[in-house]
Design a protein around this nucleic acid. Structure first.
Lengths: 340, 340
DNA sequence: TGCGATCTAGAAAACGGTTTCTCAAAATTG
DNA sequence: CAATTTTGAGAAACCGTTTTCTAGATCGCA
């Protein structure tokens, strides 16, 4: 009768070790109040039976699941995949498992996924950005589930945030291009609907221009999803305008790469005729020709730091609630002073 | 006393709906043997209380967790991230959650993660490639957990596989370059240790060359991790050889992109002096100049099909056990007939 | 030696659902 | 209309752990 169904249970270990289930539980959980000899017998018995505890039972009784959820727009974009990679790596060091869901930038779908995560008993949830359904947040709060915003630095009343200031990032791009002497601007933003980050970048960019006397209505902003082709198309629209921009800020490196592609095809010199700034500093920023000037987003760090927050004790958390990471301008070859 | 701890439980719903817990359970699980009126009361009560079932309790009693695990080398490489994206999307349509772990190409670490997944009660595990510790597989089998190999088409005795034939892929690359008239070859392989896929690609490449009378000892093979810089360095080593190759096959697009970068810097014309073939057909293949000739790996499809297998009933599964997907050669600009 | 404090470990009660068993009422049948 | 089947719903057992409660054994110390 050795071909057991699922395997040995705790009580089987107890029997083999000739002790009570309670004792086995204590040994397995590192409770010190157990005699050396017994401990040994239990460990041996557990190994012999190939015993693996039943997580559901454990979770049910102890009300601790050691489960974390993350809901991100997509794994198809390196910026999120890398964040998750960092998050997962750090969590798994502490035997915490990560359930991941992709919402495709849809906050209604996000709610459904959050609900499922709650049902699974996750103890924390990592979210992207700060645009979420009120019901989503209410549900998490009602269930006393920690949540962490990423890619944004503004935490709400409850919940924490680890990320950067998207508006400041937009301003940085504007400042840099202004300093190069540009005065004709265009922007290829990501889709800003339900996306505070894309919107923040755009607003920061426009605001900084405005502060330097450039009316934002004179700045053409087009939006595209995060695909190469969108970048191409958007750049085309920008360059077919009556007054061509000499400087274009893109909401992501992918869009920027597409913009460069289009420029090549259309015989527009980069950065000779138009300077292009990307966002993210993905590996591809080094692959475009010319190489892409861009803003570096600390994706992996965000994941790691979010994990640190989650793993911290409630008292430690207070210090970690709001964490703004720096974003750096990486100057490469796709930008130059404006040509007279 | 409304500020409840975690929220309402099933029994609270039962009380409010004035029925037994069993009935509530039936309603929530779509059991048809329940009167319309009662069903209505239960649904209403559940909504009113914001009831969310406790997954652990449910899993414990029903022995079904609706949890799937995936262990991949890294999320930092688009080829895996995209597969996971497809996998997750399909699974979540059926309310199955995905726990993901990255092993960093370390099969010992993979075992630890598999163990944790087993403990969590996952019903299936998605693995990458076919190189795994015997104990890992034994554990899964003993616990009657389905597992699926991806990125390889050879299933073992037990378990399923959805992927492609890496050796055939290597042969395809060789055939293509041979047909272009090349006779001096080099290869930049991924790290082949514990990596059947990278090794398969290399072997297929060398075998096909050998079949055409090219001694494999004359083909220099260097290995690099999957970073741009590794591609650069490897290409350098290849091109500093006495007899320079005129055709180089790279185990991934990233390596190929690095190789092209190096060639540029070193003033070696691509494809004039050396043809370069990549592998994966990532988005970056369109960004290099010249654009990269490469082999397309159906990453997203693998994820989706793996999900289909997992979601299938045991009887359906038999048909799906081994699924070989086609890989296509995408000819772009980085390859050309050998120069006389 | 005796008495409280400290260890050690077992018995039994949870945890929050699902499932089985049972039975009354309603519907169907001859 | 009686006998039989079907339907609807409750009572109670159960899933596999952890935790609380309890108590015997051992120890320290007066």
């Amino acid at each position: 009768m050795d071909l057991e169904d699922g395997g040995a249970k705790l009580i089987d270990v107890a029997r083999l070790a000739n002790c009570s289930p309670a004792t086995v539980s204590r040994v397995l959980n590192g409770n010190p109040n157990v005699n050396e000899a017994v401990r040994d017998r239990v460990v041996r018995a557990a190994r012999e039976l190939g015993y693996v505890p039943n997580g559901s039972a454990r979770a049910l009784r102890s009300t601790r699941t050691r489960l974390v959820g993350a809901i991100i727009p997509t794994l198809d974009h390196a910026i999120y995949a890398t964040m998750v990679d960092g998050l997962q790596a750090r969590l798994s060091e502490k035997d915490v498992s990560l359930i991941i869901n992709t919402s495709g930038y849809d906050i209604d779908l996000e709610y459904e996924q959050a609900r499922l995560l709650v049902e699974r008993g996750v103890e924390s949830v990592v979210l992207v950005g700060s645009t979420h359904l009120p019901t989503t947040l209410a549900m998490l709060e009602q269930k006393r589930i920690e949540y962490v915003y990423t890619y944004t630095s503004k935490a709400m009343e409850s919940g924490a945030a680890v990320g950067f200031d998207n508006e400041k990032a937009g301003r940085t791009a504007a400042r840099y291009l202004l300093d190069l002497g540009h005065s004709q601007f265009g922007m290829i933003a990501g889709i800003t609907r339900d996306n505070d980050r894309a919107a923040g970048r755009r607003d920061g960019f426009l605001n900084e221009l405005e502060r330097s006397g450039i009316d934002h209505t004179r700045v053409r902003v087009v939006e595209g999803a995060y695909r190469l082709d969108d970048g191409r198309r958007c750049m085309q629209r920008l360059m077919e305008e009556e007054r061509r921009p000499t400087a274009v800020f893109c909401g992501s490196d992918i869009l920027a790469a597409g913009a460069i592609k289009y420029s090549h095809a259309a015989g527009i010199a980069v950065p000779g005729e138009v300077s292009i700034v990307g966002f993210d500093n993905l590996e591809i920023a080094e692959l475009t020709s010319p190489e892409l000037t861009t803003l570096e987003v600390p994706a992996r760090d965000m994941g790691r730091i979010a994990a640190d927050y989650i793993l911290a004790s409630p008292s430690q958390r207070l210090h970690l609630r709001q964490r703004e990471l720096a974003i750096r301008l990486i100057v490469r070859e796709s930008t130059a002073p404006v040509r007279r």
